[in-house]
Design a protein around this nucleic acid. Sequence first.
RNA 1: GGGCGAGUACCCAAGUGGCCAACGGGGGCAGACUGUAAAUCUGCUGGCAUACGCCUUCGGGGGUUCGAAUCCCUCCUCGCCCA
Length: 421
Amino acid sequence: MTDLIADLEARNLIHDSTDREALRQSVAAGPVGIYYGCDPTADSLHVGNLIGLVVLRRFQDAGHQAIALAGGATGMVGDPGGRSEERNLLDQETLDHNVARIKGQLGRIVDLSDPARGILVDNRDWTEPITVLEFLRDVGKHVTVNQMLARESIKVRIESEHGISFTEFSYMLLQANDYLHLHDAHGCSIQIGGSDQWGNIISGVDLIRRKRHAAVHAFSWPLLTASDGSKLGKTTGARTWLDPEKTSPYALRQHFVQTADDDVRQQLLTFSLRPIAEIEEIAAAHLEAPQRREAQRTLAHDVVSLVHGEGAAVAAADAADLLFTSDPTGASEEAFDVLAGEIPSSRIAAGDVGDPVATLVATGLASSNGDARRGLDQRAFSVNGAKMDEGTDLAVVERLHGRYLLLRKGKKSHHLVEVFS
RNA sequence: GGGCGAGUACCCAAGUGGCCAACGGGGGCAGACUGUAAAUCUGCUGGCAUACGCCUUCGGGGGUUCGAAUCCCUCCUCGCCCA
């Protein structure tokens, strides 16, 4: 990559930045340390964090040092941005657990095996030892409350009915101190984050300029929103996680396959490591024949491959093909073996198969007997491709390959039942 | 410390003694239409029950009443104002 910054600009991944020319020259001049931080508020990263990780990856591929920061300390305090109420504080034990899990997920996207290429740090390591007095003198002295109050994230909270605690108010100082530490200890000179982080990021840049008289850089990407305005990865319902235990590779694939036409080009630019020219070709082909969903398929493949590996991406694609494009009753036994590993599945004794309501609840496709009955009423469920009703006796439904029942709710939820005797 | 106000289901929010499992909106799920898209229209959205109905729920606890989300007491949490 001759000009990484230009590439990112073309991908619409730069929203705000410090002096653009200085940033460009710094990146072009040689390897730099670049840092992206996320707070371990859950035991898994989600697709919202993926942008940062992919940007780190792009820098790493260009020979720079990626610094992934797990915010063990800031996670204890809570970022006031983007919410109207105080966070619930997490305890040490939970944070430890979360950081450990996140490290595994991170390591697949960003190479952490060679410290010169990438490292994972936890800001508790340098934040915990600082005393309150040191912090107030060394960090607090360099920042005016006036500036802090001017930040959008703070302003919003002050005007909200719940207000903001001093704890969360202090968050940006901790993050500023992180950047200072990484600058001193690792020579880090770029910080990145979503545009909602810009205030916090700039605080760090200012702090370093005041204390070290050094000009460091930063940029943010536009907060990813779907064309319907919802915040990606934070859809009210189920989040899409990077941990395969929480969101299977198949489910992750489905999340991206279902991307809206209007969003798919931008998402490819954001998440795919393919060159821009190739993505533009795919986008152009997609405009010609959107119903083929080739762009969505490419996007889904690239993301799953990045997060879980090529093998998982292919397996997830095969499972999806079986469920959506071909007749499940004609699928081979081997295909079902694979499918069982990709979609939710369960084993049920032959004697327990019969009543559709009980079976639907047992598989989790319905949340309660009432939910199952409502769904059956609305003809939402099918077994082996045939619609079910309350009278369907699953015991007499012919099992595929002698042992499988493929249950479906709506168009998108599947569950494979293996019947044993 | 004092005064005022608020806490309702996933979220916002109506309801101020029975017609309340609780208006409305959002979100979610499903059906029709489709391309595993969007838009649109329709249905559903506490649990048990085929059903009559029963049970649990309106910040926590206690009370008044035949009957409470609604009235009283108390506690907790939060906001605004005064000190």
